[in-house]
Write a protein that binds this DNA or RNA. Structure first.
Lengths: 339, 339
DNA sequence: CTGTTAGCGCCTTCAA
DNA sequence: TTGAAGGCGCTAACAG
């Protein structure tokens, strides 16, 4: 369906008896145009209801003013809030945002790359899929000098900028917090060990144990895909063992909630302030478990930071295209129900 | 930052000693091109690593193959799943998607309209902000013949297509379900009464009461902004009244969860199968309240339907631009904890 | 079936 | 400080 003809810069030019180029320059606030002309042009533009045609401008400049985003799933709160941050910042800077979901699958992620590339995005922000082991597809961007910024789940093989959360410290303070409560046998449910975030959280946890001279018990460290189902499996394994842990540091919200639910159902007592949900801020977590301690990162802030970095690279203000920004984490302790 | 020069159709043309238009037609699978030429063109395109430049095509055809979406907040599960549906369907049909959030504010919604318009989207899918009372800004689209489809929260003032959920029936079956459990005093927490969905749910509820000769008690019908805070206010008002209801049909998930939480905290007994969460499918609801009965709609399905409708209109397959599609609802009863 | 021609609306040299 | 001219890459008449 063709759109109606719109007002172009030439209509303004004709109305003002000047040339199209002058109008173009005036509209783009070129310094070589007199204030008087600029004002006249702007007024006339408003009067005629002129709307610049981004398409034409894009074709000419080969800039789309569009940022592509690849995320695992939009329905996870961390990512939807990251997108909110990305969108907000990008729009403010005059960029549009195109979002693609990988569904945590490598093949889909590869499709996303193609889609975004075909859309001629000026830059890309991505958080890698759980299932991604091969990062070749990202070279579509790096090979063509299209700026790429990873956030949260990053790829270390590629030389790009990154915005990460201090997962190591998160794991450390989570474990140390539990130790300070008197716990010795602290379980940790970790995620897929090819992803930086889970590796780092585990390392942080281990460091805390070592610092406090607590022997590491490998039986207390589980690797999980962090799904709900697997959360229940972990809960069973940990809570019904002959020698159960006295605290649990779960890898993510889903897992933590699964465990608490399982415990409640089986009548197993596990004080919520001795369970820690890793790195989440799901809005419903508080409802489920009002006294759960969490280690948090703000998806929104991560999104903003990543976008800021990307736009800096796109507009060439920053020559450094391999910067890594580490954002701090916070331990949030809630009122205890453990009376 | 300018992109490197890319392969164009003319490079292919030159390599094959044919004209650019033939290449263009071959690539677009025009019927008037011989299979042999098509194959030659496609092979050469692949060989050279040709990537079509959508920008140029867009400028020429004044179609962007892009759909704009305006939603209140991406972080609400219903909307994020709707977007997943929209995206999936749109991509399959070769459309890109640009998402804007209104944050449930009228002014922001108006900004979204401007942004999408400036992006020259081929069509728009929208769910109106809670705070929107004036729909003038949407005329930016309707005045210019840019197809507009509302979903879920629709605007009846504008003559557009709509995809809605059967809220009336939802309210009806929710109330009737509670009546069948023997409840007589059924409270309903409704949302802002300028929005179709809340009006209809309330009407359905009222019809069920009338059908079963239950006198309507206005004290049991609350209007709420459906926030968490107001959920607590409603809980207090209902549960601590001198004559409390024996069932509650909450307007949305947040409210339902607030009520259950409040009840638990205060030690007030309210069997979960006598509370109904209206129209939600938040992934964490089940964790919080495993036996809560819900009336559900799938955001994903709504998104798909809306996109299908919009793309039909854009591609002019359907002349009807004022269709209203009503999707059914389901009552989901879970295992009762009310032993 | 294929080629020629002429723009889509804007920006950017180059020249004045 | 402004104008003229050309072209970004593609497509849609119009001719053959």
């Amino acid at each position: 369906m063709k759109k109606e003809n719109n007002i172009t810069i030439h209509d303004i030019a004709k109305a003002l008896n000047i040339s199209g180029s002058t109008v173009s320059r005036a509209l783009n606030n070129n310094t070589r145009i007199s204030e008087k002309t600029k004002k006249a042009v702007r007024d006339k533009a408003k009067e005629l209801g002129y709307q610049p045609n981004a398409l034409a401008s894009n074709l000419r400049t080969s800039c789309t003013n569009t940022i592509g985003v690849i995320i695992p799933r939009i329905s996870r709160y961390f990512f939807s809030s990251a997108i909110t941050g990305i969108e907000e910042f990008a729009r403010e800077k005059g960029f549009n945002v195109i979002i693609c979901q990988s569904n945590d699958l490598e093949a889909r992620e590869s499709d996303c790359v193609q889609t975004l590339f075909a859309s001629r995005v000026d830059g890309v922000i991505s958080s890698v899929a759980l299932k991604t082991n091969n990062y070749e597809h990202y070279k579509t961007f790096t090979n063509r000098n299209i700026p790429l910024v990873f956030f949260d789940r990053v790829c270390d093989e590629l030389e790009t900028s990154k915005v990460v959360v201090d997962d190591f410290k998160g794991g450390f303070i989570a474990a140390e917090h539990l130790i300070s409560k008197g716990c010795k046998r602290i379980a940790h449910i970790s995620g897929p060990q090819h992803l930086n975030i889970y590796i780092n959280r585990l390392q942080g946890y281990l460091k805390a144990l070592r610092k406090h001279d607590i022997t590491v018990d490998q039986n207390l460290i589980l690797e999980s895909p962090l799904t709900r189902e697997d959360g229940l499996r972990c809960a069973k394994e940990l809570l019904e063992s002959s020698n159960p842990p006295d605290a649990i540091f779960a890898g993510n919200d889903t897992t933590a909630l699964s465990i608490i639910l399982y415990a409640k159902e089986k009548g197993i007592r596990i004080p919520e302030d001795l369970a820690i949900m890793g790195f989440s801020n799901e809005p419903f977590s508080e409802y489920l478990s009002p006294s759960l301690t969490t280690v948090e990162q703000s998806g929104f802030d991560v999104g903003i930071k990543a976008t800021e970095l990307l736009i800096d690279i796109i507009t060439n203000k920053s020559g450094n295209t391999q910067e890594t920004i580490v954002l701090p984490v916070k331990l949030i302790e809630r009122e205890s129900t453990n009376k």
